[in-house]
Computed example of a mutant assay.
Amino acid sequence: MFEQDFIRCQDYEVHVRVWNRNAKKTVICWHGLARTGADFTELAESLAHQGFRVLAPDTIGRGLSQWADNASTYEVPVYLNHAQSICEYYQVESCTWVGTSMGGIIGMVAATSVLKDKIDRLVINDIGPEIPSAALTRIVEYVSDFPAFETLSSFECRIRELYAPFGERSEQQWHQMAQQCSRRLDNGQFVSHYDPKIVQQFDPSKPPVTLWGLFEMIECPLMLVHGLDSDVLTEGIVDKMQAVKPNMHYLPVKGCGHAPGLHTKKQITPVADFISS
C-alpha cells in the first residue's frame, strides 16, 4: 500500500506516491508522456516487499500534480529540476531510476548531469536515444486529440485500445487504469487526466533530437526493457544501443509494443533482480 505526498517543486505542487517510506534504499519511477506514477503500482509493491522505498511522481500537468500556465514549462529541463527537488525533499543519497518512455529520457539526462552522483542504476523502458518520426507523430496525435466520453466505461474502451501495447491486463486492472487516468469535466463527461498542452513542444516535422552522445556518457549499470513490437524502440536502435553499451542488460518482452507495463511477474522479476544485484 502506498502513501501520497504533495510537495513543492520550484513553483509547482507535485503529487508523489510513496511505498515503504522509511526504507534506506530508494527507487525512483518516472512515467511516460501522458501517463502517471500509478503505472508502477505492481512493480513498486514488489520492490517495497524487497526492502526498497519507491517514489513515483506525477509529472506536472499529469495526474494529481499541478498544471502549468505556459506550455513551455512542459520540457525536460523543468522535469530535471523537479527530480532534483524530489531527491532533496526525500533526502535521497543514491537511487535506482526506472523510466518508461519520457521517464527514460529524463533518466538518461539526469544520470549524466544533475543526478549523476545519485543514480547508481538505470532502467530504461522502451525508449532509446532517438525516436522515429512516425512514432512521435502517432503519440502527439493521440495525446493532443483525446475525446470526451459520456461514461467511464466508454472512456475505458478507448484506454484499452490505446494501451493494448502495454500488455495483457485483467478486467480489474483495466478498470483501475481507466479510473487512474481519467477526470470528470463540469458537464459530467470523462477526459484524460493530463493537460493537453503537454505535447505542444513537440514538432514531428522538425529533425529529430538525438541523445547518442549523452547515452555514451552513462556510467552506471544499465538495463533496457524492449517491447518487441514497439514502433518507438526499433530493432535497429536496440542494436546500436547494445553496440555502444555491450554490458547493458537487455530484457525483450514478447507481445508488447510501446511500452511494456512492468505489471506482470515476467517483467517485474528481471527488473527487480537487476535493481537488487
Rank of each mutant, 00 (worst) to 15 (best):
Y250C: 08
C220A: 04
Q176L: 03
V140T: 15
N247V: 04
E216G: 05
K116W: 03
A71D: 09
F40V: 08
I105Y: 01
T59H: 13
R183V: 12
T36L: 03
F149N: 12
K206S: 13
C95P: 12
K25Y: 01
R184P: 08
I159F: 08
R183K: 14
S276R: 02
D203L: 08
K25N: 09
E171A: 15
C9Y: 06
L224M: 08
P165I: 04
N22C: 07
G63E: 09
A259D: 10
S101R: 03
S85L: 06
A48D: 02
N81F: 05
E93S: 15
Y79S: 04
K265Q: 09
D126W: 10
P270K: 01
I218V: 15
F40Y: 10
I275M: 03
V271D: 01
M241S: 03
C181V: 15
E235Q: 04
E171L: 07
D5Y: 14
P57T: 09
E156Q: 15
A243C: 11
E216L: 06
V199S: 13
V18A: 02
K266W: 03
I198Y: 07
Q4N: 14
D120T: 12
A23I: 11
L214G: 07
T36W: 06
M102H: 01
P129Y: 00
W67L: 09
S276Y: 00
F146R: 10
L251P: 11
Y89K: 07
M102I: 07
K24S: 07
S276D: 13
D126K: 03
L262M: 13
G103F: 06
L185W: 06
M223Q: 08
D117P: 01
A110K: 13
E13Q: 09
E235T: 12
E75L: 07
A38R: 13
Y12L: 15
I60Y: 10
G104I: 01
E216C: 07
M217G: 04
M241C: 06
G128M: 00
E3Y: 02
G227A: 04
D11L: 13
Y74S: 14
L33F: 12
H82I: 10
M108H: 03
L136R: 08
L162W: 14
S276V: 00
T137A: 15
V109G: 06
I237Y: 01
P221E: 05
R21H: 05
S277E: 14
